[in-house]
Write a protein that binds this DNA or RNA. Structure first.
Lengths: 210, 210
DNA sequence: GAATTTCTGTACCAATAGGTATGAAAATGC
DNA sequence: GCATTTTCATACCTATTGGTACAGAAATTC
């Protein structure tokens, strides 16, 4: 585990034959396939075709189908639409957090460059035994998102930004439920305008509107 | 096509060897498997095991996997949780329609006797080519549900039961989005209490609250 | 009872699933 | 230049997929 990249020029200078494809690029292709077809609906051939690499290359670089999915999911959460949540959480008030979250979700779910809907929702909502672990992973990630939002509301409550009667966990669940519903709507072909209208309507329920 | 069941005693009295299993019962088993695993996640073996019949019997009685799914979906819509919508639509006011719909959905989605979530949502949200038609069918059914609700709101508007400024289609989309989000929540393990709280919170956004 | 009709079980089908063995090809360090 | 190391492409593996052919069994009708 010694740190041997002393000269930081070029990635590293590996020993053997260098990889002929860009890992990030290939992962991005894989992400899009999973996103569009779901975990079970995506075959190895779908993946290798889209990534432009051979099957053994895929296994050498990414492990197997499930590990590849997890890597794609990580990428989705960091560089893709999953990043909205993080951005939203940094807004100054709870209300602004929700506004940004709902509108941001409405927009990214209907981004014409991407498949419709959310990978964390459609990736494996229900599935056979073979995909149970993937399904569990997605459930866990959704729960974590929800928990992070609840925590943010908790803080807002302490800051006096949210009424004392508000239940942060329940409010977070409500907001997340809307985003998940929007994901289903997007998968069904709802337009950006449609989803933004849903977001606005949800904001009417905001506790501090009184 | 002559109507020859003159004596209505017993189903009909077929000619050849009678079927050894009850069609409705077998269909119900199939419904539960599809419900739990989704269309793609369900294999023919899963189905025959659960239904307790052989593969040729399944094909003889139900056509093929896709037709069986459609039949199961019909059953779901008529006798299963899909019936809530119909019940809710008959409530006297728009507000009561939504109340009954949201609470009813919250309850059935978490019915301990059934798989968590909604077949029309999880059946095939994203999938491979082989299931595209099933996915389209589910989308279409969800759209029809939404349209029926919009129509109910339109009527409510004419009856003066809903403000003139309200957009029936948008309101219907909002309500349906909540139910779809609840389906994702239920699939993720949310409790009945959790979902009822979501339903109540959604009702706070009701237009006539002003 | 014979003929007919329909169902059931076994055994099978081609296609595809996810995953690998193997040897050639291309880069490195010495 | 040579050995080493790693990647690549072809070709293959077993298990499972959705779907059937076929023969025997069980019921109805005449």
């Amino acid at each position: 585990m010694q740190n041997d990249n002393l000269k930081q020029e070029k990635p590293a200078a590996h020993k053997g034959r260098p990889r002929e494809f860009d890992t990030e690029e290939a992962l991005d292709k894989a992400l899009h396939v999973f996103w569009r077809k779901g975990y079970e609906g995506t075959s190895l051939s779908d993946l290798t075709d889209a990534m432009g690499i051979s099957r053994p290359s895929l296994y050498a670089a990414f492990g197997n189908k499930e590990e590849l999915f997890r890597l794609a999911l990580d990428r989705y959460a960091e560089h893709g639409p999953g990043a909205i949540q993080r951005q939203a959480l940094s807004e100054p008030t709870a209300r602004r957090v929700v506004e940004r979250l709902l509108r941001g979700v409405a927009e990214t779910l209907t981004d014409p460059c991407n498949p419709r809907g959310c990978l964390a929702v459609q990736g494996a909502l229900s599935c056979g035994e073979a995909a149970e672990q993937v399904k569990a992973e997605l459930c866990s990630r959704r729960s974590k998102s929800e928990a992070a939002l609840a925590e943010r509301f908790e803080r807002a409550k302490q800051e006096g930004d949210l009424g004392k009667a508000v239940d942060p966990a329940a409010l977070a669940r409500f907001v997340v439920t809307i985003t998940q519903g929007m994901s289903v709507q997007a998968a069904g072909g709802a337009s950006r305008t449609d989803l933004l209208a849903v977001a606005d309507m949800a904001l009417l329920a905001w506790p501090s509107s009184a």
